[in-house]
C-alpha cells in the first residue's frame, strides 16, 4: 500500500469540474512533482490533500488512515505557499515557532527545534528579523523552516519558487532538495516549469485539464512522451502529422496522433553519409542561441523544424544555407 493514495478524486467549483476522477499514489520518502499548465488543477489537488479544500467525491488515504474528512490541522501536513504567507507581526523565530506553540510543546523543545530548522535552511543570524526585511528567497526559507519544524508526514510545496528571481531560485531549489534528503520527508511539489520539475523530482505527474496525462520519472517523461500534449509541454518537441512527416522525410509511417521529434535528435550532417533511417534537406530560415545550444529554424518542403546543435563558438551555418538533416527512426516518437 502506498503512503498517500488519492482514490477517484472529483472536484467541482459550481458547474466547473476541476479534478476529473484522479487516482494517484505517492510512496513514502518520494519527491513527487505535479506539473502542468496554469489552471489545470494542480493547486486544487494539493489543497484537497491539505484539507483547505473539500473534495466533491473520492477518498484520500494517508499512512493507512482515511483523512478525507479531517480538518487541516488534524492532518499533520506541512505546506509552503507561493507567496510565503509569513505572519508579518512576528519575527522569523516566532514564525517558525508558531506551529510548535500551537502543539503546546515545551519552551526548551521549541527553542531547540527552531534552531535546528534555521540551520537547515541557512538562516542562522536572522532570528530577530521581521519578514518584511528579508528577501523573497529568505522569506521562502523561513516558510520552509516553519513547515519542516513541525515534522509533518508530508510536505506540500505550491509553486514555492515562482515568485523568486532566477538566481536565488537555484539555491532555494537546492535547499529544498537538501531538506528532502536529510529528513526523508515525503514531498509533493507543484510547478508549471518543466525544467524545475526535471531537476527536482523522483516522479512527475503531468496534469492536463484536471486529468493526469502521464506519470513517470523525469527521463522517461522527457524521452517518451505518451501524447501530443506531453510532447509539446515537456520537450519543446517538433510535432508533425503523418502527412507532414511524409512531406519531410518522403516516407510514410503509421501514427494517427502525430510524430514527435526532439530538436537535438535531428542531426545536421557534415558531408559524410549519415547512417540514420531518414535523411532530408532543408533551408535555414533563422537561428537562435540558447545558452550552450544553438537552435536553427529549418524549412523542409514548407514544414518548419527546430534543430538544436551544441554551440561551438562560431555559427556554423547562416540563414539561407541549404543543409542535410538526418534522424534515426527510434527518435521519431509515435504519439
Amino acid at each position: 500500500m502506498s503512503y498517500i493514495e488519492f482514490k477517484n478524486i472529483n472536484k467541482f467549483y459550481g458547474e466547473n469540474q476541476v479534478l476529473k476522477n484522479i487516482s494517484l499514489n505517492v510512496e513514502k520518502g518520494q519527491f513527487v512533482t505535479l506539473l502542468g499548465p496554469s489552471g489545470c488543477g494542480k493547486s486544487t489537488l494539493l489543497r484537497c490533500l491539505s484539507g483547505l479544500e473539500e473534495i466533491s467525491s473520492g477518498q484520500i488515504i494517508m499512512d493507512g488512515k482515511d483523512i478525507t474528512d479531517l480538518e487541516p490541522r488534524d492532518r499533520n501536513i506541512g505546506m509552503v505557499f507561493q507567496h510565503y504567507s509569513l505572519f508579518p507581526n512576528m519575527t522569523v523565530e516566532e514564525n517558525i515557532a508558531f506551529g510548535l506553540k500551537m502543539k503546546k510543546k515545551s519552551k526548551q523543545e521549541i527553542a531547540k527545534k527552531v534552531k535546528e530548522a534555521m540551520e537547515m535552511v541557512e538562516l542562522t543570524g536572522k532570528e530577530k528579523e521581521y519578514p518584511d526585511n528579508l528577501s523573497g528567497g529568505q522569506q521562502q526559507r523561513v516558510a520552509l523552516a516553519r513547515s519542516i519544524v513541525q515534522e509533518p508526514k508530508v510536505l506540500l510545496l505550491d509553486e514555492p519558487l515562482s515568485a523568486i528571481d532566477a538566481k536565488l531560485r537555484k539555491s532555494l531549489q537546492n535547499s529544498i532538495k537538501e531538506v528532502h534528503k536529510k529528513l526523508g520527508l515525503t514531498s509533493i511539489f507543484v510547478t508549471h516549469d518543466q525544467d524545475e520539475a526535471m531537476v527536482m523530482s523522483d516522479t512527475i505527474h503531468l496534469f492536463h485539464e484536471g486529468k493526469i496525462e502521464q506519470s513517470s520519472d523525469p527521463i522517461t517523461m522527457y524521452t517518451s512522451p505518451v501524447s501530443k500534449f506531453a510532447a509539446a509541454f515537456i520537450g519543446n518537441y517538433n510535432i508533425l502529422t503523418e502527412q507532414e512527416f511524409e512531406k519531410v522525410t518522403g516516407r510514410k509511417i503509421h501514427s494517427p496522433e502525430g510524430i514527435a521529434i526532439r530538436p537535438e535528435t535531428l542531426q545536421i550532417s557534415d558531408g559524410k553519409t549519415p547512417e540514420a533511417e531518414y535523411v532530408f534537406e532543408g533551408v535555414i530560415t533563422d537561428n537562435t542561441p540558447k545558452g550552450n545550444v544553438l537552435q536553427y529554424h529549418v524549412d523542409v518542403n514548407g514544414i518548419p523544424l527546430k534543430v538544436d546543435v551544441v554551440f561551438r563558438s562560431k555559427v556554423l551555418f547562416e540563414n539561407g544555407n541549404r543543409i542535410r538533416i538526418s534522424v534515426a527512426d527510434h527518435n521519431c516518437i509515435r504519439l
Binding site: 483547505l52 490541522r73 504567507s85 505572519f87 500551537m102
Partner: peptide, 15 residues
C-alpha cells in the same frame, strides 16, 4: 495583509 492566505497558513500550522 492578504488575510485569506495568512488564515490558510495558520490553519496548516495547527491553528
Amino acid at each position: 495583509v492578504h488575510a485569506p492566505r495568512l488564515l490558510e497558513a495558520a490553519q496548516m500550522l495547527g491553528a
